[in-house]
Design a protein around this nucleic acid. Structure first.
Lengths: 99, 99
DNA sequence: CCTTTGTTTCGTAATTTTACGAAATACGAA
DNA sequence: TTCGTATTTCGTAAAATTACGAAACAAAGG
């Protein structure tokens, strides 16, 4: 079946993408931390969160792919922060969506 | 590994659940319609949306399970509406989350 | 009762997600 | 260069998601 070219709006697709990034409690938890206390390291999270480091790394990768989070290399650590611009975009999209 | 009993907060889990419900464009689309123009029937959606009726039915089921949407049987049709109470809860959760 | 209408459930397949431990990578320090 | 630390990627497995068409269901109308 030929994809009905761009049936969904850009906003709908963006919102779905951000929602997907937030569809797992650990990713919500990570964002909660990042939004409340600036940046943090993968290792700091690994000590708190009840999952394997490799799994945590996967979740961080997904958050990065969604655009909500960015990682700054600061060897040998990697500092994760919110991506302010995309965070604001997501905020706006959800705000519009719910009203 | 024993699940660290209730590691995530109730809010984090609820938000993840709502986010999951909104993690597919068609479900965002359906909610968009329901939030803008009251209720509608599965068949009305099926005519617009480029997916099989059975697949649409699955998505509606997920929206119902998440609590965002409710269905009223009105034979032989089923009328879908937003669940206002849960909608408001989700709105509030996302609002708090992003600020 | 049989048919039509609107919708969901079933069976199935392909893809994606989630998870883990082991191995790889990258860098600074000894 | 070798070691130690911090983190990611790889390989893999189990479970969930997404999708479809066929079959089932439920109620109204003939």
């Amino acid at each position: 079946m030929e994809e009905t070219k761009e049936f969904y709006s850009v906003e709908e697709k963006k919102l779905a993408r951000y929602a997907k990034a937030l569809s797992h409690p650990v990713r919500v938890y990570i964002c909660d931390i990042l939004s409340k206390q600036a940046c943090c390291y993968s290792g700091d999270l690994a000590e708190e969160v009840p999952i394997a480091r490799s799994t945590l790394s996967q979740h961080l990768k997904e958050l990065k792919n969604s655009g909500l989070v960015q990682g700054e290399i600061n060897p040998p650590k990697i500092k994760y922060c919110l991506n302010k611009e995309n965070w604001a975009e997501a905020q706006q999209l959800f705000k519009e969506f719910f009203k």
